[in-house]
Write a protein that binds this DNA or RNA. Structure first.
Lengths: 225, 225, 225, 225
DNA sequence: ATCTAAACGAGACGGTACGTCGCGTCTTTCC
DNA sequence: GGAAAGACGCGACGTACCGTCTCGTTTAGAT
């Protein structure tokens, strides 16, 4: 998919009056991205974007509902690179590769935008939905290809839901990315994928005879984390 | 005692002037929590807290650098319950229990504060650090007890780092919580823990003969029984 | 036309963006004046002006450096009447007339603003300068016409500086206005002008040899008035 | 005319080990005066006074209703010199002398406090009253002695009220002091006293036959200054 | 060759929250 | 028991960014 989009019906050829300025649009997205390399989304103001893009603030708000959406567009347009979908023949290796490259990118200046979007989404559900639709699901769909291959090859247990699989692989890294605990390098990525594939359980462990399940849920305390 | 407060050295008994008003402090924290039950952290204003607490805005800013910190204190002070550390005899069950209760809480009104804190932290590194120190690590330390028991009993592979284990278990849920994709109910929690313990890998899978790949998998001891 | 306004070059016809809202400006000045009729300048807040004018506080601060300047503008804009320059044929009568009307006005609610401006000027030299330029000198120029006529007619000694003349006439009243000692009615105005014109000196005074003092002070009570 | 300073316990001989209170009081007044030499009354804060005096803010407010009153006390206590009441044998000379010294003082750093008090009084009637009673009337009483001598000697017309006389002499200078128009040097003082004594009226001027007085008051416009 | 609708730049605007400052009061401990 | 230290409620300050709204200016299809 191209870096830009024309959500607007590209078919309708001629409208009355002056057309939307492509220069303005491009300038806005470019300026936004440049500013976001230096400051967090929160600190980048609509005014700064307008100023740097040589554009009126009204032009921004004419085409985007708020600056988060501008940023999302800028991010999507600017991140031309295709989602890496390695095909090494081994799902585990595929995921390892991808997690490494993903971690490397998310740790970069621009990559941290991912976190900012998640953050912004916490107080703007509409934006979060948009982020999921336009960004997250695209990545997940691509990742699911790797998963599916793994299942088909018989590498991955078919009983586990694909979304669960993806969350198992990406969740830990994203958690670390957001909370800032734990390191984020290649070996961590490897270790995570290895652990996720291998499972925590010791293969030679024998479950002791299970007792009657007691009413844990009844006495369940309000626990956190 | 609670996990929180008295940042101030409680030992030093007497200071010169008028003491910090405990009423004011309590009122602020209480008011903050009440407001946060209804509005997102972003929408709760310092002024609203002051008004509801019957307190001057200056008093708030005297003791806290910003409202996020107030909210963190309010959250920590308000959540007096201990971290649930179930001890069913099985680490897997322990984690399942805990993940269920955690999910239930984080889905609740107040529980969503967790997300807001993470969000706030994305544009305020100092706050994020504080959040980690005062909230996250405490929870993780508690959770590590369950993990350690599992390792000692021989349930959990000892080769996997404890932090990785925790991130594997909690990461997926927290990812879903933040990004809003995927459901968050008890059966999901169960599925995740099951998958994390069991691993993705099909036990009867035999890796095909490898070509020139690096020997990551080579040094991995895989004794499938 | 009024003595004020359109500090901005009224000639230059078209500026690029949205023009300054005349409604806002008028509303601000009007609201300020209305508030000043009830409260002292010190007690009138920028917020109250904004509220009453239906205007944003930022709009006020965009065009005026502080509320004193707003008040000065409001005063000047609201006091559209020309300076009274009576022309009775007699400078003494002219000044008497003017002093009476001036005293009457300065004693009124809005007139007391004069004092507030002077007061404000004591801690804000820039404002005081502005007050002089835009208010005081205009009035004095007008009053000097009366003085000049008096000099030309041969009524007033030409050896006395015009500014001294004005200060002699207005100084006493303004002193009383500000310090609050002494009454401020028509007869006082008359008495002052009479005394200023006639001078303190007894025309038939001959410097005598020094004598003993007599207890005249007994018949004059220490009345501070 | 060293009108000031050495508040320092020049007089405190009593080693009667009385309470700290007198020391505190002295320190407060001294600190206030020192601060007022640098900043306007408006800008000197109660806290700054307390800090500099090594005194608690409460102590200040225990003895004074507000900081203006402290400043007034400080001023009165610091200005130990007696009011200069020259007695040259000529009232005109007396007044000239006094006006010169008064102008010199009021133009000085500390002397400008006079203006600040007047200013403060415009929004605090109680303070203004206090200022009149404790400062102004004392000066005026002293000045009246000079006036009375002039009347008794036959220098000054006895038909003019003493207060009018004082306002005629001091009003112009105080007006200039407050509004900042016009210079304030010795020759101006001389010119003013000369003019006030001599009167504006040209001695050889003959009033033309007066016409019937027309209803000036009826058509009197709202004039200013 | 106009006419006219749309998009644009510039930038003023209402609104809302911010974090700070000074006042004068109140509370606690120390001397 | 009076004073220091200093926290407090109050209320105004001036700033910042939001997203909206005119303006007058361009652009380009429609007439």
């Amino acid at each position: 998919m191209g870096q830009l989009q024309d959500l607007e019906y590209a078919d309708e050829p001629k409208k009355r009056g002056r057309h939307r300025s492509l220069e303005a649009k491009t300038a806005i997205l470019k300026a936004t991205l440049q500013l976001l390399e230096r400051e967090s989304l929160r600190k980048v103001t609509a005014e700064a974007i307008a100023r740097r893009a040589g554009v009126s603030k009204a032009t921004i708000y004419k085409w985007w509902p708020n600056k988060s959406m501008v940023a999302l567009d800028a991010y999507l347009a600017g991140t031309t690179e295709r989602v890496a979908v390695p095909d090494t023949g081994s799902a585990e290796e595929d995921f390892t590769e991808q997690l490494k490259s993903l971690t490397a990118f998310y740790t970069s200046t621009l990559g941290r935008l991912f976190c900012q979007f998640i953050a912004e989404g916490q107080s703007d559900p509409a934006f979060l939905a948009s982020f999921r639709e336009r960004f997250l699901y695209a990545r997940r769909d691509a990742a699911k290809i790797m998963w599916r291959r793994g299942v088909e090859r018989g590498e991955i247990r078919s009983t586990i839901d694909g979304d669960v699989v993806l969350d198992m692989i990406y969740g830990p890294i994203i958690f670390r990315l957001l909370a800032g605990h734990g390191s984020l390098n290649d070996s961590e990525s490897e270790a995570i994928v290895e652990a996720v594939f291998g499972g925590l359980r010791r293969s030679d462990y024998q479950k002791p005879a299970k007792k009657k399940k007691t009413g844990h849920s009844a006495k369940r305390p309000k626990a956190h984390l």
